[in-house]
Nucleic acid binder design. Structure first.
Lengths: 317, 317
DNA sequence: GCACTGAATGGGCAAATGCTCATTCACTAG
DNA sequence: CTAGTGAATGAGCATTTGCCCATTCAGTGC
């Protein structure tokens, strides 16, 4: 038996065990007996099924408090579309909490009859959202990336939100084959002068819906941790009031973009404030509150998926 | 606090606890602390969330053996669309197993851009399927019932597959407001002569997709247990070779309809063999194998959602 | 053939869970 | 006000689950 078959059958077993456990409500002992394996192995299979995302869980009930927070956020910040996921408590992973709710929202756009062009940023929140998507094939929509997919080290693997969506939904997909951050402004211009890239950029600009993450600009800002800016640059940004970041573009606490040496080297498409079409941020967590508030104030986004604790913080003050 | 609020907040708590448990992976102790209730109460909330269907679980991986069975069934019976759910073992509830898989298949039709007219029969399998549907609103489709919704005792509650779908999806819905089984053939004709009912019948006949359950005709046939036929009638049918039943219409082991005294009194729309559009049966369980095989042979249906054990039985002999 | 390495396995145990049951609580009818 | 009724509660306990760890196993390099 070759390696691929073995991997596949392992997945099969895990899926089967997970199905029996979560759908069938069987105990791990029963599963072990049914599959002819030890109880420990059954336990491992079940837990693997969950870890590998073979099992999707979704909540089919709007909790009153979340509905209230949604309404309040809409009113307070003049948003069109808000979803608030129940909080998972202090230790919880906020990306996980938002993921399934964000996936549900995305699915409402995918369910539309009119072909939609849907643009995506990157980040952990969006990755988690995609992992929670139901893989219902829909061939009429297009998905496009707002941000370059060539990482500093040349790999494209980390920035694959688009690819994984396309894989799940079998939609036409348009990654943006430019460096996330070019070495020089000239290099950036060179890429953007290419015809195919101009089409992708045009498509992204014309998107009917946009889903983005929001990055914070504290000392552990994603931009810094992922190696796009040096510690010195980050500190300079902070000194100039950098509060958050949207597909690489840094903004201050009023949500106004800050021009930086990076600006001219950044591949991809900047999201201009006050867009008429839905621009939905998927973001939650205490560290992101200031960044989210700034983006909302500056009308960089007009929709939000977050969790209860973050919503509460955004409604304070 | 009034009764409705109390019911709602109870659901809220259950949903929240279920969310924390299944999505957040918290222990019931942690949940109890977070919600400020006893551990037992947290346990009850979590289990209530599951029982009341607030939590949906879905498997995002096709198990090899199921894929194989699907292909084999397609070939053997010339079917267009087959889904096989992993078996839940001897004690498992086959309706539960098929429900989530059937819901996924239904969602692929709902995802289509062209407005679809989707017709439904009744039964436990279909009810369970609806319970598993993701409530993504889609306003372009129509759902229509193939069978009367007036039960012998005058209640309409039991036959509400259509209503619950409409409730979830906010689609236009067309129940068939005639008795499931009229007292006399004349009464049946009277109902069907009415203009509004003729439109519903016409709509049902023109359906783009049909989802039905299949009933068996053994000694505990649904038709008998639900009080539509007497024990004597059932035995007469059996003597005449009755093997299964589709929206009330009885057929023999070759899948040919049997004319009975019931035929002329049955409200709703009979499914004619060899339809070109998808006619998908959702049915599983050892007791139904003969009925399913007959329906497949007679080309009454051209699609099937079942479970592994039933698939294996259908592929035997 | 043999030693090495990392993954897989199952024993064992502490933690988590589900369930039963006696008790309490809230509400109702008299 | 009081007794009655049924649902909700939490204690206690048996079962189930998650996880650590020593051991085995399969594959690899020498």
């Amino acid at each position: 038996m070759n390696l691929i078959d073995r991997e596949a059958s392992k997945h099969d077993d895990a899926a089967r065990a997970g199905w029996m456990y979560y759908v069938g409500g069987m105990t791990q002992d029963q599963i072990a007996t049914a599959l002819g394996v030890s109880r420990q192995r059954a336990q491992r299979l079940v837990s693997r099924a969950m870890v590998e995302g073979l099992i999707h869980v979704r909540l089919e009930h709007k909790i009153g408090a979340c509905l209230g927070a949604e309404a309040a956020l809409k009113r307070r910040y003049g948003l069109n579309e808000v979803r608030v996921a129940p909080s998972l408590g202090p230790g919880g992973d906020s990306a996980r909490a938002t993921a399934s709710v964000a996936a549900e929202l995305l699915e409402t756009y995918l369910a539309r009859a009119e072909p939609q062009v849907i643009a995506f940023g990157t980040g952990r929140s969006l990755s988690a959202m995609v992992a929670e998507l139901s893989p219902v094939p829909t061939d009429r929509h297009k998905v496009v990336s707002l941000i370059g997919n060539i990482a500093p080290d040349g790999s494209a693997s980390f920035y694959d939100v688009i690819l994984r969506i396309a894989d799940k939904l079998h939609v036409q997909h348009y990654p943006m084959p430019v460096p996330v951050l070019s070495e020089t402004a000239e290099e950036r211009e060179m890429f953007h002068a290419l015809g195919p890239i101009q089409s992708v950029v045009a498509l992204a600009r014309s998107a009917d819906v946009i889903f983005v993450g929001i990055g914070q600009m504290g000392d552990d800002a994603p931009l810094y941790k992922d190696g796009f800016v040096t510690r010195e640059q980050l500190m300079e940004f902070q000194a100039r009031g950098a509060t958050g970041e949207l597909v690489g573009c840094v903004f201050d606490e009023g949500g106004a973009y800050i021009e930086t040496p990076l600006t001219a080297r950044l591949g991809g498409v900047r999201i201009e404030p006050g867009r008429a079409t839905p621009v939905i941020a998927v973001a939650a967590g205490a560290s992101k509150v200031a960044a989210i508030r700034a983006a909302l104030k500056g009308r960089l986004v007009n929709g939000l998926v977050t969790d209860e604790a973050t919503a509460a913080a955004l409604l304070l003050s």
